[in-house]
Simulated scan of single mutants.
Amino acid sequence: MEQEQLTTERLEKTIIFDLNGSEYGLPVNFVESIETSLPITRVPHEKSYIKGVINLRGKIIPVIDLRIRLGEQKAHGTDDQIIITRIDDTQVGLIIDNANDVLDIPSGLLEEPPETIGMAKKEYMHSVVNFDDRLIILLDIYKLLNLEEIKTKETDD
């Protein structure tokens, strides 16, 4: 009977990544690729967390510095990665420290985020999960990206 319960529980396939010593996650269905060492072209704008744009296979994609978006100020390193996300027809890159895992997280383990958790802004959190002795903050991609702001920066080549 226990095996039947395990197989019927919904699993959230999640990309896990590091950012300033904490682990964060995004649902795999929003992630298109993980890129390294792409040159970012700065563009004039008013939002400090939008670092510029990249040219990825002929498509110009806006890039967000996830540290700044989450309220942290650490400068990025030379080995940062960029997670390319997609919501509907909009692609956005997210600068992270390192993508390190893909996990199937049982949906029953998801908990409401506490009022404060490190420096991360609660408004961008979907939930937290204690999984395999790891505390993982799952981000709300819709609130994080705020597509109304981002779409003004996205252009096609």
Rank of each mutant, 00 (worst) to 15 (best):
I64R: 00
V128H: 02
D133C: 00
K143L: 13
D140N: 08
K47F: 13
I96A: 07
D97Q: 06
F30L: 13
M119A: 07
K13W: 12
I16Q: 10
P114T: 06
I117F: 15
H126W: 08
E12I: 15
S127T: 09
K51A: 12
I83S: 10
V31A: 02
T116D: 09
I84M: 00
D65F: 11
P27L: 12
G71K: 10
L70H: 09
E123F: 01
G118V: 05
T41Y: 01
L145M: 04
N146F: 12
I117L: 15
Y124D: 10
T41V: 10
E112S: 12
R67Y: 14
T116S: 00
T152C: 07
I141R: 05
T116M: 00
H45W: 14
P39L: 06
K122Q: 08
P62H: 10
N130E: 14
I61K: 01
D88A: 14
S107F: 03
L144Y: 12
L135T: 13
K143S: 02
I60S: 09
N146C: 01
E32R: 08
D80R: 02
H45R: 15
E23R: 01
T36M: 14
K122S: 09
L26C: 08
S33D: 14
E115Y: 01
I96E: 10
R67K: 11
L66G: 03
D133Y: 08
S48T: 14
L94A: 01
V129K: 07
L26M: 06
P27T: 07
I64K: 00
L135G: 04
S48W: 00
F30T: 15
N146E: 13
D80Q: 12
I40G: 03
D101V: 11
L145K: 01
P44S: 02
V31C: 02
G58D: 09
N98K: 13
E23Y: 15
T152R: 12
G25S: 00
R42K: 14
